[in-house]
Design a protein around this nucleic acid. Sequence first.
DNA 1: CAGCATCCCTCTGGATACTG
DNA 2: CAGTATCCAGAGGGATGCTG
Lengths: 126, 126
Amino acid sequence: MNEAITHLKVPMELEDDRSVCLGPDGSVAHVTRTLEIIGGRWKLPILFRLFEKASMRTSQLLRDIPGISQKMLTQHLRELEVDGLVMRHDYQEKPPRVEYELAASGRDLMPVLMAMRDFSRRHPQG
Amino acid sequence: MNEAITHLKVPMELEDDRSVCLGPDGSVAHVTRTLEIIGGRWKLPILFRLFEKASMRTSQLLRDIPGISQKMLTQHLRELEVDGLVMRHDYQEKPPRVEYELAASGRDLMPVLMAMRDFSRRHPQG
DNA sequence: CAGCATCCCTCTGGATACTG
DNA sequence: CAGTATCCAGAGGGATGCTG
């Protein structure tokens, strides 16, 4: 799964080329990777929500994020889970009860997001 | 112009809602703004290139970034210029001679990109 | 309540050809 | 050399209905 963002994804054949030509550290590839992880339409709202509230049920997220649909919520939560940012807890109850919380990687990501937020603040668009 | 990334763009009607519901600081909106700026398929290669080489001609960029097309190079350079990350210098010569360099905002962005790079390094994908 | 399956529309980006 | 104009394929995401 984890269908990454198309226009950000690096075609297999070019990946090495780009790493090489753009620094031996592969900076571009790594930044691209981070972009792919947070690049979904609702990824940021979900992450910030879980950052504020620690643990949340699916229905809570659905209510607290205006405009998101069931489908997109589940889909993005899956991707975030696969990418290791979010942990899913299924309590195996009836009716279903599932909760999500930020994993360690997810918490580590927050300072990066804060840096991105601060950049935008320091550079208001023209 | 500056046609932003669709799946990242916040519909007008929801912009306020999201800012409110996701913290009074509008974190999500700001991070989204930064994402939009760097979200194009070739934005990162271009930025890193200009970060390394200071000033470059169009043809140099075209040669140094494997896989990019004339169209996308120009298009992304325009967007980066509009967003204030890149400065364009047209020397008004014949044949044409145009050079690009990072603007102050572009240089300010680099530490943020480094943070994103480091995050990816610290969290290798599964 | 939580999640999956479809259909459909929009937009990005690639390929190509042309201008000054 | 630098840039523009078309055409087109593919992916992301919205709307809706169904399942356990």
